[in-house]
Each structure stands twice: as C-alpha cells, then as structure tokens.
C-alpha cells in the first residue's frame, strides 16, 4: 500500500454512539432477512443491501464501513446462489443428470452460505459492541473505501462564480 495514503482515525468503542452501533449491527442482520426473502431470486438481497447502504451512508463512517462490509461480503454469496438457481433450472429442463461438477458446486454454495452466516453474526455482535471487524478481503476493501482520506475531504468546499 502506498505510504502517501492516509486514513481517518478509527473510532474507539466508547466513541461510537448506541444509535450508530445499532445501525451497524442492522447492516448485517438486515441482510439475513433479505437473503431469505431473495432466495428464489437471489439478486433481491443485493438490491436491499445497496438501499440500506445509501440510507445509512451519511450517518457515520462506522455505520458506512459496516454497511459496505456486509454488502461486499454478500456479493460472492449472492452470485453463488444465483448460479445454483440457474444451474438447477437448466438441469430440470434439460436432463436430470446430477454431475460431479454440480455436486461440487452445491457443496461450495452450502459452505459459502454457512461461512457468510456465521461470520455475519460475529460481525453483527462486534458492531453492536462498537468494534471493527474485518472479513478476509472484504474487510480491507470496505475499510479502504470508508476510511481512506480523499482529496475532497481535506479541502474545504469553496463557492465559485460560474465561468463566463
């Protein structure tokens, strides 16, 4: 990582308000409801996650981080689930052969959902306590996006007249 990239300081648990903690926890728990609702069409939960992110984005970096974190972690799981639905329908309409590849894929989908489920609960509990929690890969990406100092953050907005 480049050294000239700086990050906003992380809030310590005692600095995070109860409201922020609950909103951050909600980012994970809300995904479960959406994931279940989105089961026949596993893309619905992604839409719900994006909506949640935009609603809560401006509340605080802590909430923004957890919403992003949850959303990113959900993308591969959703893609896996969607793949399973499509593959399953194709199998049903073409031939009913359960190939080894399909079995393997079902295994991956089950494991991915389980891992996602378990780690989301852990993350929700941590968020409720005002703690940060980083998933492999997604934690880093979400942290970078939520906490990296961007140029526009450092410069105070200035009103200028239109160019004539």
């Amino acid at each position: 990582m480049n050294n000239d990239v700086s990050y906003h300081s992380l809030p310590q648990p005692n600095e995070v308000s109860l409201r922020e903690r609950e909103d951050a926890m909600g980012a994970y728990l809300m995904m479960f409801a959406a994931l279940a609702a989105g089961l026949p069409l596993p893309i619905i939960n992604l839409i719900a996650a994006i909506v949640y992110l935009y609603v809560n984005k401006s509340k605080s970096r802590f909430v923004y981080y957890h919403s992003l974190h949850s959303l990113y972690a959900q993308i591969p799981v959703t893609l896996f689930n969607a793949g399973l639905v499509i593959w399953g329908i194709r199998l049903f309409f073409t031939d009913l052969a359960i190939t080894d590849n399909f079995k393997g894929y079902v295994g991956v989908v089950i494991v991915a959902n389980l891992v996602y489920f378990i780690f989301s609960i852990i993350a929700a509990v941590k968020a409720r306590k005002g703690l940060m929690y980083y998933f492999v890969l997604f934690g880093k990406i979400a942290y970078q996006q939520a906490y990296m100092v961007k140029n526009e953050d450092t410069q105070a907005p200035v009103n200028r007249p239109p160019k004539m």
Partner: peptide, 26 residues
Amino acid sequence: MRILRDFLILIASAALIWYLFTLIPS
C-alpha cells in the same frame, strides 16, 4: 497487494471445496 492475495486465497479455497465435494460418491 494484500487484497490480491486475499482474493486468490478465497478463489483457491472455493476451488478446493468444489473439488472435495465432487469426490463424494452419490
């Protein structure tokens, strides 16, 4: 770089799980 490494680890574990599950006899 770390992000890339993490990404590769995830892909590799998914592939490994896939492979292991194909070995289960029906």
